[in-house]
Structures are given as structure tokens and as C-alpha cells.
Design a protein around this nucleic acid. Sequence first.
DNA 1: ATGAAAGCGCTAACAT
DNA 2: ATGTTAGCGCTTTCAT
Lengths: 343, 343
Amino acid sequence: MDRTARHSENRYGNRPTMKDVAARAGVGLKTVSRVVNSEPGVTPDTERRVQEAIDALGFRRNDSARVLRKGRTASIGLVLEDLADPFYGPLSRAVEEVARAHGALLINGSSAEDPEREQELVLALCARRVDGLIVIPAGDDHRYLEPEIKAGVATVFVDRPAGHVEADMVLSDSFGGAREGVAHLIAHGHRRIGFIGDQPRIHTVTERLRGYRAAMADAGITVEEEAWVSLGSTDPARVRPAVEAMLAGPEPVTALFAGNNRVTVTAVRVIAERERPVALVGFDDIELADLLGITVISQDAAAVGRTAAEHLFRRLDGAAHPPSRVELPTRLIPRGSGELPPA
Amino acid sequence: MDRTARHSENRYGNRPTMKDVAARAGVGLKTVSRVVNSEPGVTPDTERRVQEAIDALGFRRNDSARVLRKGRTASIGLVLEDLADPFYGPLSRAVEEVARAHGALLINGSSAEDPEREQELVLALCARRVDGLIVIPAGDDHRYLEPEIKAGVATVFVDRPAGHVEADMVLSDSFGGAREGVAHLIAHGHRRIGFIGDQPRIHTVTERLRGYRAAMADAGITVEEEAWVSLGSTDPARVRPAVEAMLAGPEPVTALFAGNNRVTVTAVRVIAERERPVALVGFDDIELADLLGITVISQDAAAVGRTAAEHLFRRLDGAAHPPSRVELPTRLIPRGSGELPPA
DNA sequence: ATGAAAGCGCTAACAT
DNA sequence: ATGTTAGCGCTTTCAT
């Protein structure tokens, strides 16, 4: 079976190769390569003939082969928690825009907050030889990435620090933001303030909790741990009863600090069902929160993504400085819910 | 310069290959390949030695080379409008889950509603030899995809039909949904109803407008085209004055139908600023719309994504039936804003 | 059970 | 200006 015949039944569903184009145009393989890659050294006439052959055959360069030779895939990987979360959509889009400006494609993956799935995804991306990696950690041990980083995969961790690995990081000021938010509630007269957060194994969660504690301590308030602090899944089925419990009993909290956007949404729903208003500050802004008058600590997801991607490409362009750690500020946006006095 | 020396400075930043592993383990190349791919025919002892070499060297299979041989990349591409739009995050996530179940990675790209950028993205994905493609069209002519589809790239169009190309499609019932929403407003006493939509070159926009016209015609209402229909960008800077204009003047509209989630958000903001309530039904559900009492025509973004991905993998698994066209139903969710009587 | 050899489709290096 | 050759790192085929 000769090469041509074999080709006609290959598994790319019969895709023409440069060799086929070369044969059809009556030129050498390298000339086709030159035309395809807009390299100089081809007469207009040959170029036209090659182009005709390309169009006639419907040729499209096979980047897998190209990558194999060149060693760069012009693609980067982004592993985040959940693309369906409104915080990550804009973040991902911002990364994509930077990647696009650098001629790279973006491969997204959701870890679903599962460390094993994070690792699986990251390693799959490494096997595909992405040039760089942006990771929003689900796990807290990233030693599995060491060989990859050593092998030259530029890596930036976002939103949460990497575990046991040296790499660039772009974080939000979770501690400062939460502290400011809780202090805001205290300034409006609250002393019994509840904190509802995500799983405590997540770094931002403990940081925000630390911010809550700091603000309370600053005001000389002793936190009633069991009654005022609730951590766990952000599933409404978990958050709802937690909020209701805090608002029930003889000595309910008069204000709530919600640890992230998912928690805020559920807290707002619960509060809306009650006759007495409850003060609320939430971490992360939410669409339409302005109309609902929800006071938030806002972090700019797009800025986080952009910053991370810019750091990544700086590395890919050869920057060799020691790992950097950027902390982006948060912003308190008063809209009413955080300025309510205690009931 | 011998091979080993060259390798030590290759452009993967010095990554070991199967050959290196083989040398270190004292076995043949193919044996390493067998271990890496869990193929049978390796004694436990050899397997252990190979595995040790793999770990010691930090070897990770290069999928580019693998793909070149196998012809399947185990990845699919998804080209959508804007990942930052809350409609597309869940859609993308749903596609990712299906892909994951089939062992495939997802490469995302945002067209920014620009047909040229769509084509650029799609062809870049084809050059990477994604096994399949899910496209939310920005343009209306997809003949450029013909050679790719012929070459075996499974393709599913979503949300809007493909132009001049035969392929599977998964759509929402834009016409029916809009008609139902507008009929709902009419049923609540409105006759002067405004329609604010996205760019008219987008298929869903004209379908929804058609639904609006159908409902109006059903009720015997003559649409005042210039005053009641406004199409264009969803930028608040365009939508806001359009809404304000409809609500101004001696004979303002008493109700609005918003063509998509972006428009709804701006319309809600404008309405909130006015003293007189204005009825509103929006296409697409929005987070917290329940709390704001916004009546919507809801389409399930995740279901759309899942359905499209399932169709795609069915094709990849060999399904050869003629192109199918699925239309998913929408659902009217009354929450108050759509049930307001005329002012 | 194991391995050697021949490519996959492309680009780099070197002719001509 | 154009072509030839030798791989990139893997899988496939066929020996052993």
C-alpha cells in the first residue's frame, strides 16, 4: 500500500497534508511551509500556485505536528473552581483576552473545588504542553507541580496561595476586605455579627474569617464561636438553615457577614422572607446587588484574571525574577444593607 | 552533538522523553509506552522499574506527539459570545462536564459577537485538530467550515442556526418564548408594549422580535415601529436612552419586553429610577431576579450546553444520521413585574 | 513479554 | 528562490 493510498484513509478523516499540497502545486514541501507560514523567499507566482492548491484541497496546517517540532503550543491552561460561578466567568474572559493578545488559546477546566480533580486537570494540561498555567487552587499541596515547573511550565496561582511550591501568586486582600466589612457593621452599631463562609480548608475562607475576628477584636467584642460562626458548603441547603439559626433564638445576631457571593445570595433570600430587617455585608459583588441595596466588599474578578495572565506572559517572555506575590485591594460599596442599624 | 546532549537543552525546558525513561530503566522504548498507557504485556517487575524511572525523571507523556500518531486529540472546542456573560458560564460548564465524562478537554473561545473573530477562533481550533466543535455563531455564513466538517470535525451549532452549512443544531424556542412573554403582558391589559433587543443580525434577536410581532398581531395591535421597537448593542449606553425614550413623551409604552439578560438588567435599572411602575418581561433568567420580582422567559443554559455536547459526542462515537435540529422549550416565570397593570 | 523500525505532519538546518 | 534531509516524541507494526 503506497503512501497516497494510505493517506486517503487516515484517521484525520482524510485531511490533506503539506506533502499533498506540494505535490498538487508541483513544488517542494518546504515551499508550502513557507507559504503557509508567510515566510519570505517565495515568488508571487509560486505563492499563488501553492495557495490555489491549499484552497482546492482544503488544507489546514496540523498544529500538533508543528507543536511537536517547535515546542510551544501557544496555549495556556486555566484551572478554576467552577466556570458557572459568576465570579469566574469574567476572570476567565479577562485571561482569554490577554492570551489572545499574545496569540495564545485558553484551555479552561473546572476543579469543582476537588483537589484530586484539580491535579488531574493540571497534569492533563501539562501533558498537552500548555506553555503556562493559571491555577485557582482547590487543594493545598502542589508539590505534584514541581517537576512541571522545573521543566519550564510557567505557573501563576490565583486567589489562593500555592502549597509547598514556589510560584507567582495573585491574591485579593481577603483579610483586609473582611475586616473592613465587619468594621463597617460595627460602626453602624452592631455587636452581634454572624459570619457565614465556605469550607474552612479554602484559604480565602480562613482569611476572611480572620478578618472578621480581627474587626471584632478591635472593637473589644468576644465572638460567640458556636452561635456566630458557620463554615461549610455554599449549597443553599446548608447555608439557609445556618442563617436561620443565627437569626433565631432569644439573642439573634443583628448583622451578617457573608463570606462569598454564593452565601450572600442565599442570605439575601432568607432575610427577604423575614419581617425584621437584618444588616448584611457580602464578600464579592453580585449583579443587580445595587438594585437590592446589598452592601458588598467588591473584588474585581477581571482585574485579577488580567493581572495573573500578564504575570504569566511576562514569565513566558523570559522574566526571571523571584516569585512575586501581588495582593489586589478590595473595595467596600455601601448600598444600604450594611448601613442598617441593629433591630 | 549527540542526542542526549541536544535533549538537555531542548525547548521543552529539558523534559525527559520515553527514550530517556527507557534508557534509565534499561528497557525498550515500547515497554515504557506500554507502562505509560497501562497496556498489557509487561511483567510486574519491569513495570516497577519503569515506573521508578518515570518518577525519578519526572516524565510526563507529550500528548502532542501522541496526537500526531493517533489522530485524536481528546479535546473539543467551544466558541461562544462572551464567557463573562452569565448565560454562557453555566452553558460552558455543562459542556465541560459532558466532555469530561468522555475523557476530553474543553478549549473555550469568546467571539465577542464578531464574525471574523469567530472564524479565526474556529479555524485555530481546527488547526489544533479538536475532535469536535460547538459553535454559538456570531456570523451568519459558515461555509468556511465546510472543508473541516468534510474532513471529519464533528460540529454542533448552538443558540443560532448555522449559515449555509449542514450540521446539528440545538436552539431555544426564541420565537415561542417571546410570543408567550408578550402575550402575557397583553393579557394583563397592556397594548403599548416596547421591544428592546440586541443587534438585528443575530438570529435569536429577529426570532424574538418575530415572537413579539406575532403576539401583538394576535391581539390585533398595530406596532408603532419607530417608537416601540429598538434594536442595537446591549451596551447600557445604548439601551438606557432607548428605554427612556419609550417611557417618555405623551404616549409612552406601559410595558417593556427585554430581548435578553443584558437588556433586562439595564431596563430594570431605568425603571427603578422612575416613580411610575412599568411592566417588564425579560428573556433569559437572571440571578436574584426572583427577589426583584422580575418576570422572565427562562431558558436553561446548562441544558442547552449539555444537549449540544451530548449530540457532539454521539457524532464522535459514530452516529451518522442526517443533521438534527433540536429546539428546547422556554418557560415563563411570573414574578410580579410582568403582571403589573398599565399605569 | 519485549523491542526495533517506520512513520504521524511538520519545521530547522542545510544544500542547491 | 527552492528543495532535501533529519528529526520532534510518540504509537503502530511486526519481529523476536
